[in-house]
């Protein structure tokens, strides 16, 4: 990737118009190679910024851990799930954590869209939407780390899932799909937001949905008017799938429901983010 600054300049016509400047050799700015390099550069940037943003790390890591401790040691004793509450709640915590982690993509994107960064990128010979790719990829990386930490702490607390390597892998893939879809949704929200604070607020629904799912309590224990919503909203099938896979059980229809939600949400969010980005940068 580092060996093409000597590619031919855009054309011989560049030189005569600026007689006093020695003709600068311009690298190629178009093509797959340039696009991949831009994405890699902006992913690297977003990952670096994430790692250095103490608030974001706290939100992505400490908060889910606190929630897990709270639910297992404080509320867990009073919740009847037909088994060890820890085993029940870990998939929910993982997805809650993914929600927090993905949600912080929105203010990060909004910061770039409302500050000077987007103008700088748009005035450079790159595809500025690589900015969103950078933020979403950093979000997935951040969530992978956060999820791993949550699972390790859960294992230390006595979480003993029955799943074999395949079950773990499948569960990880389902969580990844969920994180990816939510990250694109957050990126879309960050693109339209008029301010960083606004972007933060817009992700409220994403953070709230897990509480109205089977994450912490079985759906049938909820009041009757909530049951249909809790059962059919996207988070519940995803959680049920992860829970079954980790328990080494067949996931059943929940798996298809979860995959359909994830694929649909991912496609819709991606399309929305792309359209909003185009509109916002149209000039």
């Amino acid at each position: 990737m580092s060996a093409y600054p000597t590619a031919p300049a855009s054309g011989p016509s560049a030189a005569p118009s600026r007689p006093t400047v020695p003709a600068t050799v311009r690298p190629r700015h178009t093509g797959t190679r340039a696009a991949l390099s831009d994405a890699a550069t902006l992913i690297g940037r977003s990952v670096r910024l994430t790692r250095r943003d103490v608030e974001m790390v706290v939100l992505a890591l400490v908060l889910p851990l606190m929630m897990m401790l709270l639910f297992v040691y404080v509320f867990g004793g009073a919740i009847e799930t037909g088994g060890a509450y820890l085993d029940y709640v870990v998939p929910g915590i993982v997805l809650l954590c993914a929600g927090f982690g993905a949600a912080s993509t929105a203010p990060a994107v909004a910061h770039d869209m409302t500050g000077g960064m987007i103008d700088r990128l748009r005035s450079m010979p790159i595809r500025p939407s690589a900015l969103l790719v950078g933020h979403v990829t950093a979000s997935v990386a951040r969530n992978a780390v956060a999820t791993a930490v949550v699972v390790v702490v859960a294992l230390l607390m006595g979480f003993r899932p029955a799943a074999g390597p395949l079950g773990w892998l499948a569960a990880a893939a389902v969580v990844l799909g969920y994180v990816l879809a939510l990250s694109w949704l957050a990126a879309a929200l960050g693109t339209v937001a008029r301010s960083v604070q606004g972007a933060n607020g817009a992700t409220f629904v994403m953070l709230f949905l897990p509480y109205l799912s089977s994450a912490f309590v079985p759906v049938q224990t909820m009041p009757a008017f909530l049951v249909p919503f809790a059962r059919y909203q996207p988070v519940t099938p995803v959680i049920e799938t992860v829970r079954a896979l980790l328990a080494g059980l067949p996931a059943g229809p929940a798996l298809w429901s979860a995959l359909a939600w994830e694929a649909g949400l991912l496609l819709a969010s991606f399309a929305l983010a792309a359209a909003l980005f185009r509109r916002r940068t149209r000039g």
Binding site: S2, P5, S37, G115, G116
Partner: peptide, 26 residues
Amino acid sequence: GQFTALDDEQTGRENVVMTGRLMHLG
């Protein structure tokens, strides 16, 4: 632009290198 387009949490050098990479310098 009127507003500086810098990443506060990157170092000065990282900001400049990043721009160079986006200008497709090796």
